[in-house]
């Protein structure tokens, strides 16, 4: 077992453990912290996959911006108590069962697909900022521009929804 594999398993355990933590912890603040940890684990995976740019962006955008926003909202609402209301155990069980079945079914279906290859471990440069930037602005300039439309509408939304109406 080389160092990459050890890292893979470590990050995997961390990702799944923390993801379970997000779902199971009673305190929303803990959930946020767990989610941030999950994102760090996923960023680690990105590094293993030679997706350096994504790793950085994931930390900056997700863990940095989005999750702080979440944390901020939770703090604003003062939801850091442990007395978070739970759904009845029946509903919870149903959730677990359906999620688990979904997982098993997909795994069962997909594991028969034998045409999947092995990820080559030699480093490639597809994840470098330079390459991505060239692909983005050569081939994917249309989606790039369109995402500005999306942001514009989201911005309007935040204003329309967030602003207090003075009446």
């Amino acid at each position: 077992m080389d160092i990459l594999q050890i890292l893979f398993w470590l990050l995997t355990i961390m990702a799944i453990g923390c993801a379970l933590g997000v779902v199971l912890s009673r305190n929303p603040v803990n959930s946020v912290i767990f989610l941030i940890l999950t994102f760090f684990a996923i960023s680690g995976h990105y590094l293993l996959l030679n997706a350096q740019f994504l790793a950085i962006v994931n930390i900056i955008v997700y863990a940095g911006a989005i999750m702080v926003l979440f944390l901020f909202v939770i703090m604003l609402m003062n939801l850091n108590a442990d007395t978070e209301p739970q759904k009845s155990w029946l509903v919870q069980l149903a959730g677990v069962v359906s999620g688990g079945t979904l997982f098993l079914v997909i795994i069962a279906a997909i594991s028969r697909a034998n045409l999947l290859g092995v990820i080559n471990t030699e480093t490639s440069n597809i994840g470098l900022i330079k390459v991505l930037g060239q692909v983005l602005f050569k081939h994917y300039v249309l989606p790039f521009e369109l995402s500005s439309v999306l942001f514009l509408s989201a911005m309007i939304g935040a204003i329309v929804i967030g602003k207090k109406d003075m009446e």
């Binding site: 799944i16 993801a19 379970l20 997000v22 779902v23 929303p28 979440f70 909202v73 939770i74 939801l79 978070e84 209301p85 739970q86 759904k87 509903v91 919870q92 149903a94 959730g95 677990v96 359906s98 999620g99 688990g100 979904l102 997982f103 997909i106």
Partner: peptide, 14 residues
């Protein structure tokens, strides 16, 4: 699937 489970199980919208 953990995400799906969470979305189905929890009551807190956040």
């Amino acid at each position: 699937c953990i995400g799906v489970m969470g979305a189905l199980m929890r009551r807190n919208a956040i």
